[in-house]
Amino acid sequence: MHELGIVFHIIRSVEEVGRANQVRHIRAVALELGEVSGVVEEYLQDCWKWAAARSAMLDGAQLKVRTIPARTVCEACGEVYPTVQYGRQCPACKSEQTHLVQGNEMMIQEIEVDPESEAVPAADE
């Protein structure tokens, strides 16, 4: 149920942005998900469908997921290699002094607003 908790947090953040921009309905949310973020996209989509349907602002909204490949850098030799394939040990020099440079992201990138649903003109801007 780990994905459901994450979906609740996404919805809370997106609704906050929506309210701040006088948005009534959102048609899609774009999310960047790292390959080793620990989130299973299939489960995330299932939870999303269930939870979005319970939000007036997000009912029927699509969750667009872009996967970010995981890359690890070796502190000993500087090699940058694919994390999923080689894990924590550098394939070039066998050092275990390595760290992840990308691949654990969970970023809400952007929100697509339903054009017809835009409320009265925003006060500012």
Partner: peptide
Amino acid sequence: MDEVKVLQVKQSVFAAND
């Protein structure tokens, strides 16, 4: 086709909780 308005968020899922 109607134009879709896009709001940039660029915020970690955990940002609000943090």
